[in-house]
Design a protein around this nucleic acid. Sequence first.
RNA 1: GGGCGUUUAGCUCAAUUGGUAGAGCGUCUCCCUUACAAGGAGAGGGUUUGGGGUUCGAGUCCCUAAACGCCCACCA
Length: 882
Amino acid sequence: MEAKTIEQMPTQYDALNIEKEIYRFWEENNLFKADEKSSKPPYTIVIPPPNVTGVLHMGHALDGTLQDILTRYYRMSGYEALWIPGTDHAGIATQNVVEKKLREENKSRFDLGREKFLELTWKWANEHKGAILNQFKRLGASFDRSRERFTLDKGCNEAVKEVFVRLYQKGLIYKGAYIVNWCPRCCSAISDIETEYETEMGSLWEISYPLKNESGAIVVATTRPETMFGDVAIAVNPNDYKYKDLVGKKVVIPLTGREIPIIADDYVDKSFGTGAVKITPAHDPNDYEVGKRHNLKPIWVIDENGKMKTNGYVPQELQSLDRYEARKKTIEMLKVQETLLRILPHEHNVGKCQRCNTTIEPLLSEQWFVKMKPLAKQAIEAIYKNEVKFIPDRWEKNYLSWMENIRDWCISRQLWWGHQIPAYYHKETGEMIVAKENPNPEIYKQDEDVLDTWFSSGLWPFSTLNWPDIDNVDFKKFYPTTTLVTGFDIIFFWVARMITMGYEFTDKAPFSTVYIHGLIRDESGQKMSKSKGNTIDPVQIIDKYGSDALRFTLTSLNTYGGQDIKISDERFEYGRNFANKIWNASRFILINISDVDRKAIDNDKLTIADKWILNKLNETVKIFNDNIKAYRFGETAHVLYEFFWNNLCDWYLEISKVQLNDQKISMNTKRVLKYVLDSTLRLLHPIMPHITEKIWQLIPNVKNNENDALIRANFPIYIDKNSYPKESKEMEIVFETIKSLRNLRQSFNISVGVSIDIIIDAVENELNIFKSIEAYIKRLAKVNEISYDLGKLENKKCANCVVSNSKIIVPLNNLINFEDEVSRQNKKLLKLINEKKSLEARLNNEKFMKNAAPALIEQTRKRISEILSQETVINDLIKNLK
RNA sequence: GGGCGUUUAGCUCAAUUGGUAGAGCGUCUCCCUUACAAGGAGAGGGUUUGGGGUUCGAGUCCCUAAACGCCCACCA
């Protein structure tokens, strides 16, 4: 990396260029690569693979930032950290994009044929492949691209086939005809969770079906009159006296005249509509069940494209009409026939295709399914056994309720882009073979359907580590992975399936922790989407504010509860300003420590201020380590911000100006500055990697050898000897005093240029402390002279300040509150005694003892004994003080 | 219908076994003080959505009401 002198460093941080330079430095030195032969414990994260043709959005930026923070943190903390990047072929989404392009040329995929279409899609995917991961690079992602994977690559393909065949052989994959959610636009089945329901205002049409060979009719209510041609019965509730006599009789379908029976079934709700339901097994899931119970053969009247079929069941004038056109026309025709009795407004939920928002059509068709119940067992136990932990844990409930009510998973899609199902049919006999390879392509034809995209994503944690080759070094070293970071919107789609498949095929949970972050929303809380036009492009934010700024802002917004995150462009100023502060504070330190020696800090020469900042740093280190292990990202960012800005910059750097001018301690102060800067950059590095690496490289004598880099430096840990609680408390006196003086100065409107003396009225023991910190006070409160006046003012506690002739006479008690240690400890003691009292009252409360969880009772007892021992300690302390 | 989340300063949000309500932005005052005006020093601003309860003590626990949001299920 090109070294620049400090003088060349501008006063404004140039994020754009420095970030590029630093990322290149890491890449060229192979610093992201994980060593599978390392003896360090592994720390593994797999990226939630973004769509291969996708572009980076804020969700990725958040997700990626958190994963990178973890990876960098553990890499610096003695782990062999591996973050595996990769992309998803995203079946429907990608195919849609390519088909759209074809449509612009007035072509469909069928014009090209499967082979040509796939060729085109591969070309498109390959062209875009890597684009999104290159955008992740702008984020500073330290993933190991030598291990980059794609859900359709050879290895993943191998894993998919292996899994499919094994599940089939175990009877956990089956093929059969069921009602599925059919998207007429995608022309494919989709799974239950790919169907989203929207409340729509529709109508309830009441249609009269005349009885056969006698007068009278039965009236049914329907929301979908166009399906009436597929009716196979009219059902009524067996206990409905209204229709008792009609059961068993036949009615005639208006417009076509086909005869259907009236049947009785519990499914029918007497009180809804007319109490009579038309049964259309081919186009409604409930009707399908009813039809099955009554042995009624389904009749298809709508085809795969959502058009009315051309068969004998559908009236001629409706054939091959779009379903909605057909509905209109059906109603018109019924009106003419006077069999349409009433139209009632009716609100109902309509299923929509998640991908294209087309209203789905329940359609009876032959599909492949995974039997989920047996597979879910271990995935459910995983939570109870604590082998998989969700953070925040409320998502465990959500996960469990879904897993415990899981339904079979429809995995076949009538698409071309994806993993073609490894089932082969004998061209003549139709015999089916499920195997990884076609036994004989001359005789057997492969199933034309492909698998749901999430089928391959579900194998991602181990397919990326070369499973099914379980003896390979990567799998052995890095599986199971450690943490999964993702949004709650794909818990069912992805997380649940990975856990299920992980247990089934590796006998282990694929990761031990699932960290669920909130969703990124716009300023007004709306979900960001291209169609709404409210998206904020992370790459643009990076261009404008810098990657570290983006990362810091996003990190700071992560709350413990995983709330959704509202962002706006301006929010990134927070991170940018912080980066700039880091830049300038570092410039100050670097300018002043250019001649620092290599010696360690001389502890004998430490001032009270040195000890205070070392103590603060040490505390910050502890909080950081605790927080990151508890996934408290937002708090971690805030703690660093506060330490850097409010402690280091606002106080210590100002104080250091005093110390640097004092020859006796100047060099030691430089050592402290260097140490603090070095440690702070290490602390900040996981969140703000570029700026910290850049500055760290400029610290004199920080590297042991030329190739050292911050990214691989050791992460700070709490050090006992850097703990100075006593001095830290005394230092607070300095701050209180200075703040009070600043306050006075402002309220008496004393400008800086005027020379003022301050007479401090203090008693002797206070005076000693005061004299030791005088220099700091003078400088930071901009006071020229401080003189002391022992015991001059009477009744100090209520005395007021006297200002005259540029002199301020200040009773010390107005500046600082010297609380004596005994009363402080007594206060503490009182608090503890009160707490103990309430806890004991709790234990004596019958109701509580009866109803409270045993753990809580145990906890209460523990706390009481804790208090008891603390009481003893404090009592002893008070005795000694007296 | 079932479940979950949210409600705290003008705005956006923090506050891990109950213990003095905090930050950023915005507002007001002063300051180009030799790292930083993307900065510095100060100030103001809160009956923590309403009601009830437990407790010495409640933003936090319990009950209840309301508003907003999300997930699941779904009767034509």
